[in-house]
C-alpha cells in the first residue's frame, strides 16, 4: 500500500493524516511538496486539510494550480485514487476533478464539532467497499467554507449517478444535522469513475486513542484497503 500526502504552504492536517495512514497500513506515506511536479507511483494520493496559501482569492484556488496538482491530475486521469479532506476537497473542486464548489458556511461562522454522517448508496468505488449503505459515522468537521453548492441539475445528476458519498444526518438528513447549509446535506462526493473523493469531515481526527470517536479509522481503513485491492 503506497500512498502520498501533498503539502502546501498552510496545510495543517498533513502530519495527522500521515500518522493515521501509517497506523492503519504500517507504511509511512510519501510527503510531496507542492512544488514537486513528479509523483512516484502510488495507490492513493491524499490532499489534507488546512489553509493552503492562506485561502487567498478562494479556498483551494491557488493550490489547485500548483505543480504537484498537475501530477495529481495525471494520476487521476490514469484512474489513480485521490482523497481530499476539507481544504483538500476544496482543492479538488477547484481543479475540476470533482464538480461543484464549496462556499461560505450558511451561518457565517467557522464550525468545529463532531457531526453524524450516513454512508450513501453509491456507484462502484474502492473507498466505501467495507462500509455498508446507511452506516453511520461520527467524525468532526472544522471549516468556514463547507457549504456545498451546485445547480439543481448537477445535484440531481450526482444523486441519480450515485456520486453522493456522505450526508450529514440526525437519523435522517435534516436541517438541524446540517452544520453549514450544504446543498442536500452533502458532506462528501465521488467522481463519475468512483476513484476521486472529496469530503469535509476529518477522518484523521477520529482515530480512537484519545479521540472521542474511532469512526475515522474505520473510514480510512475502508479507503486504504479498498484502493490496495
Amino acid at each position: 500500500m503506497r500512498s502520498a500526502i501533498l503539502i502546501f504552504p498552510g496545510s495543517n492536517c498533513d502530519r495527522d493524516m500521515m500518522v493515521a495512514v501509517e497506523r492503519i497500513t504500517g507504511r509511512r506515506p510519501a510527503l510531496v511538496w507542492h512544488k514537486d511536479s513528479q509523483l512516484d507511483p502510488v495507490d492513493i494520493v491524499i490532499i489534507p486539510g488546512g489553509f493552503s496559501f492562506g485561502d487567498y482569492l478562494r479556498c483551494g484556488a491557488l493550490a489547485a494550480r500548483a505543480p504537484a496538482m498537475e501530477a495529481v491530475i495525471d494520476h487521476a486521469s490514469r484512474g489513480g485514487a485521490v482523497l481530499g479532506v476539507c481544504n483538500g476537497f476544496q482543492i479538488l473542486l477547484e481543479t475540476g476533478l470533482l464538480p461543484g464548489t464549496l462556499v461560505r458556511n450558511g451561518g457565517l461562522k467557522f464550525v468545529c464539532r463532531e457531526v453524524r454522517l450516513a454512508v450513501q448508496e453509491t456507484l462502484e468505488t474502492p473507498f466505501l467497499a467495507d462500509l455498508s449503505n446507511g452506516s453511520e459515522l461520527r467524525i468532526p468537521v472544522a471549516h468556514n467554507e463547507g457549504n456545498y453548492f451546485a445547480d439543481d441539475a448537477l445535484l440531481d445528476s450526482l444523486e441519480q449517478g450515485g456520486q453522493v458519498a456522505l450526508r450529514y444526518v440526525d437519523n435522517e438528513p435534516s436541517r438541524a444535522a446540517n452544520p453549514n447549509g450544504s446543498a442536500r446535506n452533502i458532506a462528501g462526493i465521488l467522481s463519475a469513475n468512483g476513484r476521486v473523493m472529496g469530503m469535509m469531515p476529518h477522518p484523521e481526527r477520529a482515530m480512537g486513542n484519545g479521540h472521542p470517536s474511532d469512526d475515522g479509522r474505520k473510514f480510512l481503513t475502508s479507503v486504504l484497503e479498498g484502493v490496495a485491492r
Binding site: 462556499v103 450558511g106 457565517l108 457549504n147 453548492f149 447549509g181
Partner: peptide
C-alpha cells in the same frame, strides 16, 4: 444571481 450570499445577507 441565484447563488446565496450569506455575507451580503448579514
Amino acid at each position: 444571481t441565484g447563488v446565496l450570499d450569506p455575507q451580503g445577507r448579514a
